[in-house]
Design a protein around this nucleic acid. Structure first.
Length: 857
RNA sequence: GCCCGGGUGGCGGAAUGGCAGACGCAGGGGACUUAAAAUCCCCUGGCCUUUGGCCGUGUGGGUUCGAAUCCCAUCCCGGGCACCA
């Protein structure tokens, strides 16, 4: 540019212009087609934006600006996913309220994002920690509660002693906490749990219609883990209930040599033989302490102990010993399996270790298997009574049918997906809007449908035990939302895992009036007449909660009557395009689908799926090819890049690095090429006085070659933007500029079209040059160039000439020259003719307008 | 172990059945300049007997008139899942 620093003034000028003019304010209605493009909103960390943020945001911004230029009404919002652990840890350390730190971080993020010049409608900014926002997060929770999808259970959960909190399965990687990498252990605790498993089939089937990366779909499919099999009952010797197992291999039923129960299996207490009681109890205690890591480590060993009890085979009546072993999971299927060591690897190793018999009942077909055991593939049954001779598939069906007749089995479907542990023992999250009361008081509320507290009561009460007494969950009425976070003196969780909210004693104790729906702090010995004394739930929601529905809040962020204004929701529906990191492939993206589907079920939204089109931008690595990290010292700071080269350069460069979804290393030197490109544009457009250059002419002076290149570029840039091939779109613009800058005169319209094509990528410089050309701002709203087929047309075609597929030359001919004539000219070509002298032509291939190939003997 | 994705110059990458290496970086040469920076022009996969030819997209096969591109095998790198019966 004019000098090294002028871009900063230009960029600030246009950012201010867009803000002042409301250039990118989306209307909730109108005649223009709506286009909604959504970024995964950031967690505003204290360290500010990292270099990966602008990658996804620039990509979505290019789409937003492209659609504005196509005349669409574009919604491109931004907000903050601001509940979470780092702010809470900061609060623990400093004693200041996490809201303060969060506000500062948001301020910083907003400033950084604004300096990138995105076409964001800032009037729709949202923040998950804003009570006007989380009021509706709480409302959705109450709806889930009312529909029986939120319940409480005492169950072993992952407890992290360092973080002093419970973690979800998804937050644990290799037996350690995802955040902080601390060891975790099992601990039984009362938890709020969301019944996501009720949506397992929907979540699975709904994937089919989505335009998502295949790998992400596959991950969700694997996570949901649908499995078709059978439940089979193995009767016990006495009169007790049978042991029910789940298997996908009912065809191997005659190969069962023992049963295995998970250590958590509830029947164990009833069935263990007196002599084995101590051993089994000991084993269960050990297993309960184990984390994933240990269980994996011990996998080769396959520990277990006999229970001394026996079941009977449902078809043969043979006695089958029952073992307990932690290679069977309590939380999957029925928590019990039939062991067929001949046809299952795990059962085989266990049987070897513990000296249990191995009984083969499936022949591999020719070519399958290596002849040894275990053989885990399909085959032909033998030693299986009347089922012998059937294929595995037929055998499975026949055996299940037989069991059904006997009342000892049935086909069954299982999912690997577990219900979602939804409570956290933390301060900085949405308070769960529930009050716990005792049985008699609850009956009074339940008996009075007119009570405001009955608004969200489920059909089946949610109950729990507290200090040996049964307590009941009472949902707050909608009118009591938002339930604000109370002030506390310390943000530390207590050692026994109680949330910091439990420290707010005048908040936890509460009196409620079932008639009026009023609540007030509990005072005195007991509640006043007509009031009920309760204790507030002190757990908060996990960070995932706020991001489960934020795509809806942007549609009407200031609506105070509902989570989303129905007219706005009917107009925008769901994002046309959603972009964010692949690390959210199963967590956020599955939870959000669950909530959105639930909201659809209860009629709150008109769509079943929230994100019909999804894309993951690839990671940007450090220059050394490693993930950027402070410890490696390879972190690139976007502020520094903007300070030195400007936002346009950073945007262009990140898009030029390579394919959007690829993992690619940063290259500090290469940004110089983008810097040169921008400076070249500036010099090319302006004369020395900074005026739009005299070389641009209103007359048609371009010539057909220039015009063809321009229209090829228009077509390419449009196609590439739509396909998200931003790197090649930028290449094409460089090719065009390299051509144009050599010309003495250029049509003004050509220069303006070039600026328009570049504007989605580098909006500031294009606005400035557009204005200096005398056009009225904003370039962002000027109709995007359209390729002209007439200009694209070429009279001649270049034909490649090959001998035996090897390139020997080329030939330029009129496009409509007949094939015979092309072949005649090709045979006479000086680079071709000598080859034809010596050898016989076996075959002539002519692909019209492209290539001639002579196949010689 | 299972399921994906990917291997192309010194580097990022382009080409998805028809000119391998577009575009950019780095490197070399030249112009301008007292000089430097900036800018502009040219060269830049390897080899040879250089107006030409041979080799070349991880490796080995195959399909095809023609393969970086499709198929089979194999090696390496990256990601996901990992006792789910």
């Amino acid at each position: 540019m004019e000098d090294d620093r002028s871009f900063s003034a230009v960029e600030a000028k246009w950012q201010e212009f867009w803000r002042r003019e409301g250039t990118f304010a989306a209307e909730n209605g109108g005649d223009c087609p709506p286009y909604y493009v959504l970024d995964m909103f950031p967690y505003p960390s204290g360290t500010g934006l990292h270099i990966g943020h602008p990658e996804g945001y620039t990509a979505s911004d290019i789409l937003a600006r492209y659609h504005w230029a196509l005349g669409h009404n574009v919604l491109h919002p931004m907000g903050w996913d601001a509940f979470g652990l780092p702010a809470e840890q900061h609060a623990v350390q400093t004693g200041t309220h996490p809201a303060l730190n969060t506000a500062q971080n948001i301020e910083k993020f907003r400033g950084q994002i604004r300096r990138l010049g995105f076409a964001i409608d800032w009037s729709r900014e949202i923040n998950t920690t804003d009570p006007h926002y989380y009021r509706w997060t709480q409302w959705i929770f109450l709806q889930l509660f009312r529909h029986g999808l939120a319940y409480v259970d005492e169950r072993p959960v992952w407890w992290c002693p360092q973080l002093k909190t419970v973690l979800a399965n998804e937050e644990i990687v290799d037996g350690r906490s995802e955040r902080g990498n601390f060891p975790v252990e099992r601990r039984p605790m009362r938890q709020w749990i969301l019944r996501i498993t009720a949506y397992a089939e929907q979540l699975l089937q709904g994937l089919e219609g989505l335009d998502w990366p295949d790998s992400t779909k596959r991950q969700q499919i694997a996570w949901i883990g649908r499995s078709e099999g059978a439940e089979i009952d193995f009767p016990l010797a006495g009169l007790e209930d049978p042991i029910r197992i789940y298997t996908t291999r009912a065809d191997t039923l005659f190969g069962v040599t023992y049963l295995v129960l998970a250590p958590e299996h509830p029947a164990l207490e009833r069935i263990v033989a007196p002599g084995q009681l101590a051993a089994v109890e000991d084993y269960r205690r050990q297993a309960a302490r184990k984390g994933d890591l240990e269980r994996t480590d011990l996998a080769k060993e396959k520990s277990g102990v006999p229970t001394g009890a026996q079941a009977r085979h449902p078809l043969t009546g043979e006695p089958i010993p029952i073992w307990v072993a932690d290679y069977v999971l309590g939380a999957y299927g029925t928590g019990a399996v039939m062991a067929v060591p001949a046809h299952d690897g795990r059962d085989f190793f266990f049987a070897q270790r513990h000296g249990l018999p191995v009984l083969p009942v499936v022949w591999p077909k020719d070519g399958d298997g290596d002849g040894g055991l275990p053989y885990c593939g399909p085959g032909v049954l033998f030693a299986s009574e009347e089922f012998s001779g059937l294929s595995s598939e037929e055998g499975r069906a026949a055996i299940v049918r037989r069991l059904e007749e006997l009342g000892l089995g049935r086909a069954a479907v299982n999912h690997r997906l577990r219900d979602w542990v939804f409570s956290r023992q933390r301060y900085w999250g949405e308070p769960v809007p529930i009050v716990w009361v005792d049985g008699a008081d609850f009956s009074a509320i339940a008996a009075n449908p007119a009570s405001p507290f009955a608004e969200f009561l489920p059909e089946k009460p949610v109950r729990a035990l507290r200090e040996g007494r049964e307590i009941f969950a009472v949902p707050l009425p909608a009118g009591q939302l938002p339930l604000l976070l109370p002030a506390v003196e310390s943000y530390l969780p207590s050692d026994d895992g109680e949330s910091p909210l439990a420290r707010a004693q005048d908040w936890v104790g509460v009196d409620l009036n079932p008639e009026s729906g009023e609540l007030r702090p509990a005072g005195g010995e007991g509640p006043p007449a007509g009031w009920i004394r309760g204790r507030r739930e002190t757990n908060t929601m996990p960070q995932w909660a706020g991001s489960c529905w934020y795509h809806l809040r942007y549609l009407s962020p200031h609506c105070s009557e509902r989570l989303v204004d129905p007219a706005a929701e009917a107009y925008w529906r769901v994002p046309n395009f959603y972009i964010g990191g692949a690390e959210h492939a199963v967590l956020h993206l599955l939870y959000a689908r669950f909530w959105h589907r639930f909201l659809h079920t209860i009629g709150a939204v008109g769509t079943a799926e929230p994100y019909p089109r999804l894309f993951h931008q690839g990671l940007i690595l450090g220059e050394d090819g490693n993930k950027m990290s402070k410890s490696r010292g390879n972190v690139v700071n976007p502020d520094e890049v903007i300070g030195r080269y400007g936002a346009d350069a950073l945007r262009l460069f990140e898009m030029f690095l390579g394919p959007l979804d690829a993992v690619k290393p940063w290259d500090t030197r290469a940004i110089g090429g983008i810097d040169r490109f921008l400076k070249k544009i500036w010099r090319w457009c302006l004369d020395e006085g900074g005026q739009f250059s005299q070389k641009f002419s209103a007359d048609p002076c371009d010539g057909s070659r220039t015009q063809r290149l321009l229209h090829e570029t228009i077509a390419t840039v449009r196609r590439d933007i739509e396909a998200l091939h931003f790197n090649t779109a930028i290449s094409q613009l460089m090719i065009l500029l390299n051509h144009l800058q050599r010309l003495e005169r250029v049509e003004r319209a050509t220069a303006l079209a070039f600026l328009q094509l570049l504007a989605p990528f580098a909006p500031h410089i294009c606005e400035e040059l557009w204005q200096r050309a005398g056009e009225s701002p904003s370039i962002a709203r000027a109709p995007f160039p359209v390729p002209d087929p007439v200009k694209l047309h070429c009279e001649t075609a270049k034909i490649l000439l090959q001998i035996n597929g090897r390139l020997r030359g080329d030939l330029t001919v009129p496009v409509d020259l007949p094939a015979g004539e092309v072949l005649r000219l090709a045979r006479l070509h000086p680079r071709v003719e000598p080859h034809l002298m010596e050898r016989e032509i076996v075959k002539e291939v002519y692909v019209s307008g492209k290539v001639v190939n002579f196949v010689l003997r």
